[in-house]
Structures are given as structure tokens and as C-alpha cells.
Amino acid sequence: METRIIEVKEFAVTGYGLQGPLEKIPGKWNFLNSKIAEKGIVADESFGVCLSMEGGIIHYIAGIKSHHAEKLTGTEEVIISAGKYIVAPVEGGIPAIPTIFNKLLELINYRMRDGYAIERYTHPENELIIEVWLPIE
């Protein structure tokens, strides 16, 4: 698995939250994407942020950077902390995301820090590129 380390400045993600089973995540993305289209918002990336997960119940936000989300209503906002993240590309599409997160967590050369597990989606030239980010010290 190919990885890289990035350093990010703090930023905010605004979107639609879920507190429920993992199976409901696609519905949040469908809702977010419909609102983005309806409001004519142009964002070059989107984020899935896992705020917490316990017993199969996830608190998750499907969103975009907050400065793009001013036209959205009924949203939640989360601050993504500044610092280092280990990043891995996801090959195999959305179903492969949990596998990549688990592989990153198994890497012994890195110490995790407090922060959120993040999925980053970009859409260059009608292609979906997915990365997973985990905060590290």
C-alpha cells in the first residue's frame, strides 16, 4: 500500500450528518450531492468525516469545505485539526475504504493523534479519486 504524509492547515467541513448504522452513509452523500447540484455549488473536493463510531453506530458528516457551503441549510460543521496526516489512496472504490483504514491503523511506524478519520473525494475530469486520512503525530 502506497502512503504519503501531508501537513494541513486547520479547515472546516460543512455537510449533512448521520448518527446511525453505516448502511445509511450513501443516503447522506446522495442528499449532499443533490443539494450541491440544486444550489449550483462548485467544490473540487468533498469529505466524509467520522466523528465517532461505537457498536456499529457512526457519527459521520458528508460535506464540503465550509467556505463553499454557505448556501446549504440544516447542516453540521466540523473543524479538521491542523497537523500531519498519513494518507493512502483507495483502489477498488467505496467498498475498499474500510480495508484501507484498517491497513493504515496497522502501520507500526506511526503514532496516531487525536483527530478524525477522513475520506477525501476529488473529481478531476469525471474520475473519482478517493483517499483516506488518519491524523498522526
Rank of each mutant, 00 (worst) to 15 (best):
L72C: 03
V132L: 09
K39P: 02
V13P: 02
T3H: 13
P26A: 02
K35Q: 15
L105K: 14
Y85H: 11
E76Y: 07
L22S: 15
D44M: 05
E7K: 13
K9I: 08
N109E: 15
D114C: 11
P26G: 01
N126L: 13
V8F: 01
A12M: 10
E91W: 11
E119G: 09
L134S: 05
R111Q: 15
H68A: 00
V132P: 07
G56T: 07
S81D: 15
K9H: 08
E106Q: 15
M53Q: 13
G115S: 12
N33R: 14
A43T: 06
L72S: 00
Y110I: 08
Y85M: 03
Y121E: 03
E23T: 15
G74H: 08
R120A: 02
G15V: 06
A82Q: 15
A62Y: 03
E10M: 06
G92E: 15
I79Q: 11
E70R: 11
E77C: 14
N126M: 11
I130M: 04
V13I: 14
I41E: 00
G83L: 09
Q19L: 12
G92C: 13
Y16K: 01
I61F: 02
Y60C: 02
P124Q: 13
G115R: 13
I94E: 14
P124F: 13
S46W: 06
I36D: 01
G48I: 02
M1L: 15
N33D: 13
L134V: 07
R113W: 03
P135K: 04
A12G: 13
I5D: 04
L22G: 11
K35N: 15
G56C: 08
G92I: 10
G56A: 05
G20H: 09
E106F: 05
A12Q: 07
A96N: 08
A82E: 14
A69H: 01
Y110T: 10
G27M: 10
S66M: 04
I64P: 01
A88P: 00
M1C: 13
K28I: 04
V49Q: 06
K35R: 15
K103Y: 05
A88H: 02
E127H: 14
H59W: 10
F31N: 09
T14R: 00
T14V: 04
I6H: 09
I100T: 07
W29N: 01
K35V: 09
E137M: 14
L134A: 05
E70I: 06
I118H: 04
Y116W: 07
A62L: 08
A88V: 04
A69F: 00
T73W: 04
R113S: 10
E70C: 13
K39M: 12
A43D: 02
Y60S: 03
I136F: 01
I64Y: 00
N30P: 07
K35A: 10
N33S: 11
G92T: 11
I64R: 00
P98M: 09
E45S: 07
T73A: 12
I58C: 05
N102C: 07
E38I: 05
V8M: 04
I130R: 01
E23Y: 05
P98A: 12
K35P: 04
N30V: 08
R4V: 13
A88L: 03
V132R: 09
I58S: 12
T14Y: 01
V87K: 04
G63H: 00
L72P: 01
C50P: 05
V90C: 12
P21C: 12
G115Y: 03
